[in-house]
Nucleic acid binder design. Sequence first.
DNA 1: CAAGTGACAATAA
DNA 2: TTTATTGCCACTT
Length: 110
Amino acid sequence: MDKIEREGFFNRVYEAVGQIPSGMVATYGQVARLVGAPHRARYVGFALHSNPLPGEIPCHRVVFADGRLAPGFAFGGEAAQRELLESEGVHFLADGRVDLDISRWPAGLE
DNA sequence: CAAGTGACAATAA
DNA sequence: TTTATTGCCACTT
């Protein structure tokens, strides 16, 4: 937890996302806050896109504040992501959104 | 060096 | 209620 701060705020995002357990999802804003960037939500997603670090960064576990996914993700679409998250054990709403009420990773953060 | 861009979030209409 | 716009701040060109 000390070596992470190299020069990239990105690396912190990677760490935070990498700590998301299966069956859980974190929102960009939450990850941003965890890395110490309450208003850098945009950049959190940018970090994942810029440097996917395949295998180290479960981007599919990161969703919008509404529990929604990006309108044109990379895995093949939001639908593919839904399947993937369901496979992890994440609950979904009828609206196609993640059930942040239970699948929210920083449970108890507040 | 300056301007543009971007997997979001919050507020306004 | 949903849709549109603005603001954020670091990285890219």
